[in-house]
Amino acid sequence: MSAAYGADSTAMEVVDGLDLRDRTATVTGASSGIGVETARALASAGATVTLAVRDISAGERAAESIRASTGNRDVRVAELDLADLVSVRAFAAGWSGPLGLLVNNAGIMHVPELRTERGWEMHMAVNHLGHFALATALLPALIEAGDARIVSVSSSGHASSGIRFDDMFFDRDPYDAELAYGQSKTANVLFALEVTKRWALHGITAAAVMPGGIWTNLQRHWDPAVLADMKRRYPTKSAAQGAATSVYVATRAPLTPGAPVYFEDCHPAAIVTQIVDGLHGVVPHALDPVAAARLWDVSVELIAED
């Protein structure tokens, strides 16, 4: 199946011929970038799609664009701030009915040192713990769907750091934005690995994706000279191409216990000791089942009610 799709495929090409009218989907961070193109593709195939966003106005603009381009009026907007567990729980409490597709797309990258009210470093809070809290709160809806899938948007940046279990929030060591981002992207892969292990009995499976080299607002904190150099050196995808692997995992990829859990260019990625060309492959620390189980248990403790 995946042979038909590759690095140049768009999200719309991946869903061509699919009928998703019986599917409900939520895409976080869906007001721009690959998030909106993921939502657009799913809506174009008939899915009922909720854009889970911090900025409701931006979300409504994105939703109207999707409705206009796809003809699907079942595109909704709901507020979600992944850095705020109250917001996460309110989103889940407001959900009704089954949830067949959860695309954990929202994220931040290389931001200056920021912390949540709980003192959590912001990369780990938004990229992992907020999505972890969202998925676990929505578990009844995922179970109700019978065959739900979770897409965890990671990055080749995972190679820069495993999980810093002894100092996850840089309370002891000096803050390092690259390491903070890297461990949060490793967490995205480990989360997907553990979801399938723990929840496959409910029909729920998951995988992580590397979208590719896409230049969006995610890189707004980069040095402009570094960003310009990266654009010259590495292949660039459009947002629609970057969304293709998320949509492929959400709709077509074979996801079962023991199956590949990290995809790039609509294919399982090779396991490598060093990321190839800055973009390709998944390193072993992101596939460590012991780390995945430990991260899950730590995350459960961290998001527990006060």
Rank of each mutant, 00 (worst) to 15 (best):
residue 59 G to C: 12
residue 54 R to D: 12
residue 41 A to C: 06
residue 102 L to R: 10
residue 31 S to L: 01
residue 135 A to F: 09
residue 64 E to L: 13
residue 31 S to R: 00
residue 23 R to C: 10
residue 201 L to P: 05
residue 80 L to W: 11
residue 274 Q to S: 09
residue 163 I to S: 05
residue 95 W to T: 05
residue 152 S to D: 12
residue 195 V to L: 10
residue 102 L to C: 12
residue 141 A to W: 12
residue 124 M to R: 03
residue 4 A to M: 10
residue 67 R to W: 06
residue 297 D to P: 01
residue 14 V to F: 10
residue 68 A to R: 14
residue 198 R to M: 12
residue 194 E to V: 04
residue 42 L to W: 13
residue 305 E to S: 10
residue 40 R to G: 02
residue 289 P to V: 01
residue 270 A to M: 04
residue 305 E to Y: 03
residue 114 L to T: 14
residue 80 L to Y: 07
residue 257 P to R: 06
residue 21 R to Q: 13
residue 171 D to I: 01
residue 306 D to K: 07
residue 171 D to E: 15
residue 268 P to T: 04
residue 277 D to C: 02
residue 123 H to W: 09
residue 143 I to T: 15
residue 270 A to Y: 00
residue 61 R to L: 14
residue 193 L to K: 14
residue 207 A to P: 05
residue 57 S to T: 14
residue 232 R to E: 07
residue 206 A to W: 03
residue 143 I to K: 15
residue 49 V to Y: 07
residue 197 K to T: 14
residue 122 M to A: 14
residue 247 V to I: 04
residue 281 G to E: 04
residue 218 L to S: 04
residue 264 E to Q: 15
residue 22 D to C: 08
residue 215 W to D: 15
residue 39 A to H: 06
residue 132 F to T: 02
residue 301 E to L: 07
residue 254 P to D: 10
residue 54 R to M: 05
residue 254 P to R: 07
residue 186 T to P: 08
residue 158 H to A: 10
residue 159 A to D: 08
residue 258 G to H: 07
residue 279 L to P: 03
residue 107 G to I: 00
residue 271 I to V: 15
residue 172 R to P: 03
residue 290 V to Q: 14
residue 55 D to F: 05
residue 218 L to I: 14
residue 200 A to W: 13
residue 14 V to R: 02
